[in-house]
Amino acid sequence: MTMMNEYTGFITLFRKECLRFLKVIGQTIFSPLISSTLYLLIFGVNLADKITSQNGVNYLMFIIPGLIAMGLINNAFQNSTSSIIISKFHGDFQDLKIAPLSTSSIVWAYALAATFRGVIIGVAVAMVGELFYWVEYDQFLPISNLFLLFLYILLGGVTFGFLGLSVAIYAKNFDQVSAVSTFILLPLIYLGGVFFSIETMAPIWKFLSQFNPLLYLINGIRYSFLGVSDFGPELTLPLSIGFMFLTYGIAWLSVKRGTYSRF
């Protein structure tokens, strides 16, 4: 198995995963984009005047990076899970186990395809947000640190691509994946600072929220977009990188030891 073969295998799986979600673009891109647009319209535009400013910025500004993060995380996770669950259902997931693909190739191909989908959603949400901002304030919202934003988006995409991969490999049916998404991921996203600053929370919730790894990623994205957030990059960046490595380890073990058999 040469490096070239390994690279070809990785690129093929990455390409296949991207083509998969682009074939059902209505479900995978437009549907989450519509949800985020509605959030922006309702909370960021219509209710913005009635909501106290967060982190010292108006609510539309505050919510744009939050919704970018939410779109990225949710869709990266769902890309890996839905692809693998459908593949297990069809019976072709075992092709990956039989082929000479290394564990790392499988993990990275799924995670980067998930990131690609997350980035498409994130960029689309940012464009819609900028459009609303321009309508409201007659100017575009400048991005504070583009490099840092790119870094956090990459970290968020691969981290939740890894997690989705791990959950789907061990899941025995659609319900189990849906349970993780609804009962774990969604509360962590909603309580992780997408819609409000941690400073507005009661002390007990504020304390508990500090254990939510998504809080640091979402705040990292907000900081790189606006230049303000609950936590600075000196805290959020190392924690997000650490979480990424942790989820990579989990995904690697899942791919190595998990089940590839059909439902």
């Binding site: 070239m4 295998g9 690129i11 093929t12 296949k16 092709d95 082929a99």
Partner: peptide, 14 residues
């Protein structure tokens, strides 16, 4: 055809 292209790619064949 796509399935067979992907399968070839998994084995390192372009």
């Amino acid at each position: 055809n796509q399935v067979l292209e992907f399968q070839s790619g998994y084995y390192g064949i372009r």
